[in-house]
Computed example of a mutant assay.
Amino acid sequence: MALFRGVWSVLSALGKSGADLCAGCGSRLRSPFSFAYVPRYFSSTANSYPKKPLTSYVRFSKEQLPIFKAQNPDAKNSELIRKIAQLWRELPDSEKKIYEDAYRADWQAYKEEINRIQEQLTPSQIVSLEKEILQKRLKRKALIKKRVKLKTINENWKNLSSSQKQVYIQLANDDKIRYYNEMKSWEEQMKEVGRNDLLRRTVKHQGKDDTDEC
């Protein structure tokens, strides 16, 4: 708490409140699953879109995270976030209100701008936008599913004994040798038919060096 009060006193001395500093901070929280939020990367609609405002807590976190990182360079982000969350819980309501008021003001402006943009969309643009939203949603779900699967595989690998891991390591080494032999045979065939353009760069350089030595 003392840390925050110290930082806050410096900002007050500079004549800038937390709301002033946060008014333009942060990046958009991209959540393309709500039609009310029109992301910037949907190129089939208007040219520019407003940023979705950050919540009061996220504003506070983004403001405090660089400070905590500078003071705890070896700490993990998860640890810093927990400390910031605790600091936010201890923050007086009067100081929280600065961030909350800034969020409400930005949210109202955001909704008005979104309504203005939606009124300008044609039916075909709305259909195109809905398709893009669906594609983004499916792509995101597939990515999350893939990450979960990779995490599970990684955990299973860690739980294997050394003898169990050795079986897979040996199989991988056997595959590496097989690949090397098959690739070498294929490259020799490509040389014979004059298709050096298909060879790997290392093989090309090796052939050139052999010619220079001759």
Rank of each mutant, 00 (worst) to 15 (best):
N47K: 14
Q64R: 05
V58H: 02
F60E: 04
A36P: 07
F60T: 04
V38T: 12
Y49C: 04
P39V: 14
Y37N: 07
Y57V: 15
P50F: 03
S56T: 08
A46D: 09
S44M: 03
A70R: 12
L65H: 13
A36C: 02
F60Q: 07
L54Q: 09
T55H: 08
P66W: 14
Y57L: 13
T45E: 09
A36S: 05
N47L: 14
V58Y: 08
Y41A: 00
R40I: 12
N47S: 14
P53E: 11
K51F: 05
P66I: 10
F42T: 01
F60D: 03
S56Q: 10
Q64I: 14
P66N: 13
K52A: 15
E63S: 02
I67A: 03
P39N: 05
E63Q: 12
N47T: 13
R40V: 12
P53V: 13
L54M: 14
Y41I: 04
E63M: 09
L65K: 06
A46Y: 05
R59D: 02
P50R: 02
K52F: 15
Y49S: 06
I67G: 04
F68N: 05
S44W: 11
V38E: 01
F60L: 02
P39S: 06
Y41D: 10
A36V: 12
Y57S: 12
P53H: 11
N47H: 02
P39W: 02
R59G: 08
L54D: 04
I67D: 07
R40S: 04
K69N: 13
A46E: 07
P53G: 11
V38Q: 00
R59P: 02
K69L: 15
K62D: 12
F60G: 07
L65Y: 10
S61A: 14
V58E: 06
K52P: 00
Y37P: 09
S56E: 08
P53C: 12
I67K: 04
K51S: 11
Q64G: 01
V58P: 06
E63N: 03
R59Q: 15
Y49P: 11
P39F: 00
R40K: 06
Y41W: 03
F68E: 03
L54I: 09
